[in-house]
Computed example of a mutant assay.
Amino acid sequence: MKLLSSVLTILSIAVCAGPTVATAGSDFKKGVNISHWLAQHAPGHYATAERFEAEDAAWIADHGFDHVRIPVDGRILMSIEGKLITELLQPLDQALEWCRAHDLGVILDMHYLPGNEFLNDAADNALWSDPDLRAAAASLWTQVATHYRDVGPWLRYEILNEAVAPENEDLNILNQLIVDAIRTVDATRVLYVSSNRWGQFQTVPDLRLFDDPNVHYALHTYEPFLFTHQNTSWTPLKDIPAGAVTFPGGIEVASDSPLAAQMMKEHHTLAVTLERADVAAHYAPVAAWAREHGVNVVITEFGVYRAADPESTVNWIRANVELCEAAGFGWSVWDYQGGFAIRGPDGEPTAVYRGLFPER
């Protein structure tokens, strides 16, 4: 605890003493992701009302948030002829009206582009090797930016979610291509570009910076993954019992446990200790990078899966929020009513929410 407080103090002093950070868009401080609505939706459930409607925008605004991040599946937005299918944007158009009515900003997050996935075993990742797909991605963004050109600056774009490019420079090239394409029709809107390999902190030093105060940098963190994704069906952590990994704390398994082989493979030990200071150390290099370059950073995804125990969830969320605040980073938590929800099935705030807003 003392080490975390010390790191927070150091970060706060350094942010105050560092270069002046561009202010455009820096008011996006506290957001939430509207997951599995316009991207990653179940078959036949694209834009279904139960995922997001006017009441949800009102609830989010009333509970302390200033923006939402809406993931969109860009792979379905273009016709065979390469034209934007504007009918598929109608649910988003409606959402913009709801959000505007409640003074919520919006990040339109292109969760996928044609030829791009972010899973470890992605079957469709030709974007990085096919120039025609990259041209299609730029064309898609040009058309989307044209469609929303007259919307106010409270709408921002995150140009690609969690890229997994073969090389970090491949993503730099794509970022430049898409930023240039958008700038042909919209010169000043805030755009978010991300680092390679799921927007993780470790690849930030290789990010190519833009000489544009309205290009900001979007990163994701779920570290330690062992805690935030315990018992998730889509990861190797699916066999970890719910609540088995605590924070602060960790996990220790017996040598004859069914988890022993996985623990040795992933962590080379049967006992993993997790501390708040580990999270602080994870943030420190990125905070230093942002100060050095005078750039705006937003953590557009962080969260804890519902299997974690409530107290540990509050602890981890709170540590991340405090570190973001110390570094001057905005954030958008994952997610509204999915597996990492801030709002439970009963409509009430969850442990994730309590970690975000302990005073409410």
Rank of each mutant, 00 (worst) to 15 (best):
L207Y: 02
A287C: 06
A287G: 04
D211S: 10
D180Y: 09
F210D: 10
V286A: 06
L226P: 01
H216I: 06
A271H: 14
V179N: 05
P236G: 03
N175H: 12
L226Y: 03
Q200A: 15
Q200K: 14
K238L: 12
I251E: 07
T228R: 13
A277Y: 02
I240H: 08
L219V: 11
R197Q: 15
L191N: 03
T273C: 05
L259Q: 05
P205Q: 13
E169P: 04
H282R: 14
A287M: 07
D278Q: 07
D180G: 10
A280F: 10
L270T: 11
I182C: 07
L274N: 03
K238P: 05
Q200N: 15
T228P: 08
Y222C: 08
L191S: 03
V185E: 02
F227L: 05
A284N: 11
D278A: 09
L209E: 13
A277R: 12
N214G: 07
G199K: 03
H216N: 14
S255R: 06
D170A: 07
L177S: 14
T235Y: 01
W234E: 09
D170K: 01
R183W: 05
S233P: 14
A242I: 02
R189Y: 06
D186G: 01
E169D: 11
N168C: 12
T246G: 12
Q262K: 15
H229Q: 00
N214H: 14
T235K: 00
K265I: 09
F227D: 00
S233L: 14
G243N: 07
N175W: 04
R183D: 01
M263S: 00
Y283P: 10
P236Q: 01
L237M: 02
T221W: 14
P241N: 07
N175C: 10
P248H: 03
N196S: 14
A244R: 15
L219A: 06
N214W: 13
T228S: 15
R276S: 12
V179Q: 00
T235Q: 02
Q176N: 03
P213Q: 12
A181V: 09
D278F: 03
L177I: 14
N214T: 15
L209M: 12
A242P: 01
T221D: 15
S233D: 11
A181E: 04
P248R: 04
T228Q: 05
P166G: 04
N172K: 11
D180Q: 13
M263D: 00
M264K: 08
Y283G: 03
V190H: 02
S257W: 08
E223P: 04
A244P: 05
L219R: 04
N172C: 10
D180N: 06
V215Y: 04
